[in-house]
């Protein structure tokens, strides 16, 4: 009897750290962490920006349910893709079907910013540069121009 009690205590002692570790691992992600990386398909915006849409609320409830069931972020995303299709993934590169498009998503805004900055810099430099004075004409040329101006009474 005493041996059985000791064995039971030892087993309980062994299981405590394991269950504690399991509890610490769950949840593995949060709704807030995921909703910026997935779309609300009906709203056409990331889920984090879609507050009132019934579909968004339904999607959030589904994600929260998966989070509560200890799914990782990747597992939640896979489940969302299975339900809503690949378009539910908001981050370029997540969909994995259009590498060139994914690159463009990052390159085009960067290119736009660089060009806009270059345009502003160019405009500022030109604006600050002093106006060049017209070159004075040499003696005889200047005198001839004055004569012409007087003759035409301009």
């Amino acid at each position: 009897m005493r041996h059985a009690a000791l064995a039971l205590a030892a087993l309980a002692f062994a299981l405590v750290p394991a269950s504690t570790a399991l509890a610490q691992d769950c949840p593995r992600t949060t709704l807030g962490d995921i909703e910026d990386e997935v779309m609300c398909p009906v709203c056409g915006t990331p889920l984090g920006l879609a507050s009132e849409s019934p579909q968004a609320q339904d999607e959030r409830a589904y994600i929260q349910d998966l989070v509560d069931r200890c799914k990782t972020k990747d597992e939640v995303k896979q489940a969302l893709v299975a339900e809503y299709g690949e378009n539910v993934l908001a981050l370029p590169g997540d969909q994995g079907d259009d590498d060139f498009g994914d690159v463009l998503v990052y390159v085009i805004p960067a290119l736009g910013i660089v060009l806009a900055a270059a345009g502003i810099a160019f405009a500022v430099v030109r604006w600050r540069r002093p106006e060049r004075q017209p070159r004075a004409l040499a003696g005889t040329e200047g005198a001839r121009l004055d004569d012409d101006m007087e003759r035409y009474d301009l």
């Binding site: 056409g44 085009i108 060009l115 270059a118 345009g119």
Partner: peptide, 24 residues
């Protein structure tokens, strides 16, 4: 040619954005 090129590229980017919106 520099500002002309910048304006052209910015216009192209705006056209691309408009195309993307029209596709949706």
């Amino acid at each position: 040619p520099v500002p002309i090129a910048i304006v052209c590229v910015l216009l192209a980017l705006m056209a691309l954005l408009a195309y993307g919106l029209a596709q949706n």
